[in-house]
């Protein structure tokens, strides 16, 4: 089973990369863009079976993301 994990800086936490991008966009004529947040995208393959979601959730909490500063979301893709 494939999974996609999206990790972003927690709401309220300053994201200097996102801010820099946000401030650069008007220079290229893209006005009005806000709330740019830069994160990570991780793809992985899990062993099939029940409990994959729960296992992935724990992986995110324990390693893939640092819950103190990062939020995460994931998608499981049945093939």
């Amino acid at each position: 089973m494939k999974a996609k994990v999206y990790i972003t800086p927690k709401a309220g936490i300053l994201d200097p990369q996102g801010l820099t991008i946000e401030r650069s966009l008007p220079a290229l004529g893209f006005e009005g863009v806000s709330n740019v947040r830069v994160g990570k995208y991780i793809e992985l393959e899990l062993p099939d079976g029940e409990g994959a979601g729960e296992s992935l959730e724990r992986m995110c909490r324990k390693l893939l993301a640092n819950p103190i500063i990062e939020d995460f979301e994931y998608e499981l893709i049945e093939e």
Partner: peptide
């Protein structure tokens, strides 16, 4: 306790 982020000025 806590966590480290990238330096503010990257």
């Amino acid at each position: 306790p806590g966590a480290m982020q990238q330096n503010e000025k990257l």
